[in-house]
Design a protein around this nucleic acid. Structure first.
Lengths: 327, 327
DNA sequence: CTGAAAGCGCTTACAG
DNA sequence: CTGAAAGCGCTTACAG
């Protein structure tokens, strides 16, 4: 690798001068500038980012912590973040935590030691509370961590209410809710929204908790439908769980949406690939990612934020698994 | 941030001694060691990874270049890579290239300047040929770049042959192949495999090219089925395209697998979420990712490789979209 | 306008 | 066994 010294030697100037033309700051004569530019060109010199980082204490990298990139909600989020990062000159380090405290801590330490400029937390065990004392810009995405940390979420509760109301409007009289893990923010809020609406309308309902694996959801729904054959509506806390519900319904020869209506939550791409395509509460996934990194960059650049709480609207997308929609 | 100097001062030794206990190399007395350890503990000192990188010219980071992490094949791959990286003490930088030469070049430069220890290329325009002269360990994944670069792929051609043979065995007489972009290695090989089998068996066939968007595939298959209503089998170059084919079939009221049988390629998770679930050529996605990073780490650690060519077996997973399987 | 020097935080020969 | 010093590649006051 050619270094700034090589360039200086070739251009017959000092390294300070080379540095000045590199950073376009400070005075430098036309002749010196030209000589340096020629030297850079002919030696194919690229400044060493690590040395710069050591001096500036800023690396141009941000850490993205997700539970599991293989969970289809997160790739879309990651893509949005990476797109904006590219434009703004940042680079994204991907970390899968599996919601395990140990992995989370490990990554936070590793990233800090590398001088990352900031962190986007799309994960959180809820137990690792050191983010505020980290002295590092942090944005929480799809999760609430602390009031001092800018947060980007979608309208989980409202979305859940809309989904539940839709099922009721379409004639469901006994609705099951497949809720996500307790203690997980979005799952709790979706549950709240569901409960509020069924209770307000005096609708029979039942709640079952599942994780993010399709098999769990499928099994849960199969058991549920066998035990309660009169269930005619299901609202799931994720689209993946909805797909599991659809598989279970298919196995039990319950036709969708005639016998059983299903509404998912997330609006990930594959919902539209299902047959019938999935009615779901669409989160503005890409926009959430975009906003999160924009806020993070503002924080990094020490610009002040107008708001620390950003709740983006969800929209009910009616498709083939409920009666209001098409195929 | 506390530095090695602070620790040295607190422990009343030189920074050299602190460094020695940090790295557990060189002689250091029990007393000095103890003093340093206490100092590290009480000051909560973490060594600065950037300074180390500057000296050692090795960062503990690897770059992962994929076309688009939102394309469901890549998150599974990325997850495998990240899992192994975590175990081996590396960190993964995620780069989406969209198969654009400009983005690819940008990332390669940016990563090099950050002293990444190696690159995994799961993308490639085929035009950027500088990887061999990069002086950086590189592994090609799901793509052939050069004979000098260790390569991990799956048996694309054999998989395609098995898929096509399966369709013929199940009675298909007029088979369409939705091939991926020309010039893209895996797509070309799958096409070759298909062609060989249909030609050897004298089966009527037709080829259409599509990209990786479900909408393209759906539209292509709709047009195809309208023009050629006697098509009774489709082999697609990806599972996403197969989902598009299923949607088109559904729209045209062609029942699967009775009227129309479909085989995909990839074996991504969501194939199993479809109804009927998708018969597909399963690539060992996780294993491919694992192997790629293991090879890369071997390269980084200057251990020699037995082989530069790793072709992992694919398996035909017969499910609900062809007649041999279940639902 | 320009260069010598100190410093970012670490590591490792080199003397002792 | 231990410390002073040089060096990794850059940047920026400070003199001139």
């Amino acid at each position: 690798m050619t270094t700034i010294k090589d360039v200086a030697k070739y251009a017959k100037v000092s390294v300070a001068t080379v540095s000045r033309v590199l950073n376009q700051k400070g005075y430098v004569s036309k002749e010196a500038e030209q000589a340096v530019k020629t030297a850079i060109e002919t030696l194919n010199y690229k400044p060493n980012a690590v040395a710069r980082t050591l001096y500036h204490k800023t690396s141009g990298m941000i850490g993205l912590l997700v539970p599991d990139i293989a969970n289809p909600f997160f790739p879309e989020l990651a893509r949005a973040i990476e797109d904006v990062a590219l434009k703004k000159g940042y680079t994204v380090v991907l970390c899968n935590t599996d919601n395990e405290l140990k992995k989370e801590q490990h990554y936070v330490h590793a990233l800090q030691q590398k001088y990352v400029d900031g962190l986007i937390l799309a994960t959180g065990t809820g137990t690792y509370e050191h983010y505020e004392t980290l002295d590092l810009p942090v944005v929480a995405l799809d999760r609430f961590v602390s009031a001092n940390i800018p947060t980007v979420v979608s309208e989980n509760k409202n979305g859940a209410k809309a989904a539940t109301e839709h099922l009721i409007e379409q004639g469901c009289a006994f609705i099951a809710h497949l809720r996500g893990p307790k203690g997980l923010n979005p799952a709790d809020e979706r549950y709240e929204g569901f409960k509020e609406v069924v209770e307000a309308n005096g609708i029979a309902h039942i709640i079952v908790e599942t994780g993010f694996q399709i098999e769990q959801a499928e099994e849960a729904v199969r058991a549920l439908l066998e035990k309660h054959p009169t269930i005619d509506g299901i609202f799931t806390s994720s689209d993946v769980a909805a797909a599991g519900a659809m598989k279970a319904a298919h196995t039990l020869k319950r036709s969708i949406p005639e016998d059983l209506q299903i509404v998912g939550f997330d609006g990930i791409l594959f919902g539209n690939m299902l047959v019938p395509s999935l009615t779901t509460v669409q989160q503005p996934i890409y926009e959430m990612g975009e906003l999160a990194i924009q806020l993070l960059v503002q924080l990094i650049e020490k610009r002040s934020l107008q708001s620390y709480w950003h709740e983006l609207p969800t929209t009910l997308t009616i498709r083939g698994t409920t009666k209001g929609g098409g195929a």
